[in-house]
Amino acid sequence: MSRTMEWAARPEHLGGIPRKLVIAMVGTFAKTVSSFLNTTSVHNADTLLRLVRSRPRRVPLITISNHMSTLDDPAMWGFKGFPIFDTKLARWVLAAEDICFRNALYSYIFRVGKCIPITRGGGIYQEHMNEALERLNDGEWLHTFPEGKVNQEEAPIRRLKWGTASLIARARITPIVLPIIHHGFHEVMPEKYMFGRRPPLPLWNKKIDIIIGDPIELDLPAMRQKAISQSRSESFPIVGWPSTCDGLDEAAQRCFYATISEQIHAAMERLRCFGKSLLKS
């Protein structure tokens, strides 16, 4: 399968002018939603700003968050002080192909805006996941929603898909993994507002809270060895995943990605609980 409009995602496409225009329009929209129409408070913003602006050279960054609305990205980056108009610092983000890439115009705009199409249910080795891995290997910032779909319930973090874990495991340089929990976007863009549909425009006078955690410490070598040992005593349905460059077969990969996902899930759930206590205080 050829990559959807990959040429439009390249920074040199038409001298970078389309990207600058799209990032400017998207940034203006995000600032309007988060900083003018609604009230947004951010906890620990300095950690995110530092990692976006000045992390070690070539070290990739993965931010992960819950997914409360179709506006989460880009609106969550519209808070005051965030460099949302900088095309070089802007995140790459995994975006649902069936929503963001429905036709040629949408595909072009989202591609220029540094979005990578993901087919839900397409597996962790689909072509565009390899593209996301390439961006990480370039030392870029990638944002993912590992729950895999919008969840507007006031409930614990759902079981995470393994795609994000596989990217962390396969990247040449282990990414910095930063959890983010937000609350309020489900009121700005409720899934069932008018006749069971989303409103045509974002709602206003809502309170948005963004809680940024600290980087998650992942001991990948130890987790890899544990996965190899564990895989020898468990059976999995085999679908034909390729072996990794360090020799992990499919069974070991499944154990490895599950272990990484569980640790990320635990960190996100702790941050969610911390956020709840923060909002009550």
Results as ranks from 00 to 15, higher is better:
193 Y>T: 10
272 R>V: 02
86 D>V: 12
11 P>R: 00
93 V>E: 12
50 R>Q: 13
28 T>G: 15
181 I>R: 03
218 L>R: 00
82 F>K: 09
269 E>T: 02
37 L>T: 09
161 K>T: 09
207 K>N: 07
262 E>D: 13
3 R>F: 08
257 Y>V: 08
209 D>G: 14
181 I>Q: 05
163 G>L: 10
250 E>V: 09
116 I>G: 03
138 D>Y: 00
79 F>A: 12
66 N>H: 05
214 D>Y: 11
246 D>W: 06
142 L>D: 01
246 D>N: 12
152 Q>R: 07
124 I>V: 08
21 L>I: 11
246 D>I: 05
40 T>W: 15
92 W>Q: 04
236 F>E: 06
249 D>K: 10
191 E>G: 11
199 P>S: 04
242 P>Y: 05
166 S>H: 05
274 F>P: 03
263 Q>M: 10
137 N>V: 07
270 R>N: 14
174 T>H: 08
130 N>W: 12
251 A>K: 08
89 L>H: 08
105 L>P: 09
193 Y>G: 03
150 V>C: 11
26 V>T: 15
255 C>I: 11
267 A>L: 05
228 I>R: 15
25 M>G: 12
228 I>T: 13
275 G>I: 00
38 N>Y: 07
91 R>G: 04
121 G>R: 11
82 F>P: 05
180 I>R: 06
143 H>K: 10
176 I>E: 10
142 L>M: 01
235 S>R: 06
41 S>Y: 07
184 G>D: 04
56 P>G: 02
64 I>V: 14
94 L>N: 13
76 M>R: 13
51 L>Y: 13
192 K>C: 06
185 F>W: 04
264 I>W: 04
195 F>V: 13
52 V>T: 15
204 W>E: 05
195 F>K: 10
72 D>G: 09
281 S>G: 14
29 F>M: 04
126 Q>T: 03
188 V>W: 00
237 P>N: 02
241 W>S: 09
201 L>M: 15
8 A>P: 00
